[in-house]
């Protein structure tokens, strides 16, 4: 049984100007000790998917369909109390996008880091602090750093603390939403090394979310490509990077600037991602697709297994 199984998940935002279908029929599984990368352009629903897994979708958003099975329990059916006591931090923890900028400036970072321990275990402050010191060493920082205030830390140090915090309760799954975006390349490389090490030592499962395919390549064994609320391609990293099937994946990879090798004109995908209140009919990528043909704007392509373990939702590969 996989550690996590997501089936046909739908999460919509009910705004005054219409329903935003941010996650619209997403399915995938995550095995124990596996790293899954989720990539896609800004606004395609990556963070919304992550929040859904922890049942933390901000209003006016709501999970409206599908299931999220963790150890056979369906998170979507749980009460807030159950999610808090059984899932969050213990089973699944999350490194939130931009969390390092969310430390309260007037409270010592240590007191903020131990908060999940105080909330979710019966440790007292002293025990929690000692535990946090251990974890802080693990992410390569001196334990004294817990005594400091946020403004006394660099961006890279704060991001390490956010990672330490996500690991405190030794969860089975860690979701990392853009863990290195907006960090300098050197610090980014340090954080990626840290995540590789933790992953090897602790055997955790990781869901890595980012728009940066190069970062995904550094960590993920399997890769899911999202477009406009849907997974359009899913497979082993080698297959997705070396033999991308979906025209969207092909275009995304072509747009990545390379540091070495021949320098062609930088490619970009013409047009803009669709308005998720009113997505195009058929395949959502069809208005921007170079290989569009007759069925694409009429019917939605199913996700089919094109090669072993390599799935794609595109009419080029599906039988009608």
């Amino acid at each position: 049984m996989p550690l996590l199984e997501v089936r046909d998940l739908r999460t919509y935002y009910y705004t005054m100007r219409g329903v935003v279908r941010a996650v619209d029929g997403v399915s995938f599984t995550l095995e124990k000790g596996e790293t899954l990368g989720i990539a896609g352009e800004s606004g395609c629903g990556k963070s919304t998917l992550a929040w859904s897994l922890l049942k933390l979708v901000p209003p006016p958003g709501r999970i409206v369909g599908g299931s999220i099975l963790v150890d056979g329990m369906d998170v979507t059916k749980m009460s807030e109390h159950e999610v808090r006591s059984k899932i969050r931090w213990r089973k699944i923890s999350m490194i939130f996008q931009g969390a390092m900028n969310a430390f309260n400036p007037v409270i010592k970072v240590g007191d903020q880091v131990i908060e999940p321990l105080l909330l979710h275990t019966d440790m007292d402050r002293e025990e929690a602090w000692a535990r946090a010191e251990e974890m802080v060493k693990h992410v390569g920082l001196p334990p004294e750093i817990l005594e400091r205030y946020p403004h006394e830390l660099s961006g890279g140090q704060k991001q390490r603390l956010v990672i330490a915090m996500a690991l405190l309760l030794e969860p089975d799954i860690v979701i990392a939403d853009e863990p290195t975006t907006a960090l300098d390349v050197v610090i980014q490389a340090q954080i990626l090394n840290l995540m590789k090490r933790l992953y090897r030592e602790k055997g955790m499962s990781i869901i890595l979310i980012t728009h940066d395919l190069s970062v995904i390549a550094e960590l993920a064994e399997r890769v899911a490509i999202m477009y406009a609320g849907k997974i359009v391609e899913l497979g082993p990293a080698e297959a997705v990077f070396e033999n991308p099937l979906h025209p969207y994946t092909q275009a995304l990879l072509k747009a990545v600037p390379r540091l070495r090798g021949p320098k062609e004109r930088l490619y970009y995908i013409p047009g803009a991602p669709p308005d998720l209140r009113n997505p195009p009919r058929g395949c959502r990528f069809n208005p921007r697709c170079e290989r569009r043909f007759e069925p694409c704007d009429r019917e939605e392509p199913p996700l089919v297994e094109a090669e072993k373990g390599h799935y794609v939702a595109c009419w080029l590969y599906a039988r009608r």
Partner: peptide, 27 residues
């Protein structure tokens, strides 16, 4: 040199290796 070495590239083979960080400490 340190900057160039730190830049990730979309190559899944990079998973198998730690990045060489040719710089110490912080700015």
């Amino acid at each position: 040199e340190a900057l160039v070495a730190a830049i990730p590239e979309p190559d899944p083979r990079n998973r198998a290796r730690m990045r060489d960080i040719k710089i110490k400490g912080e700015v």
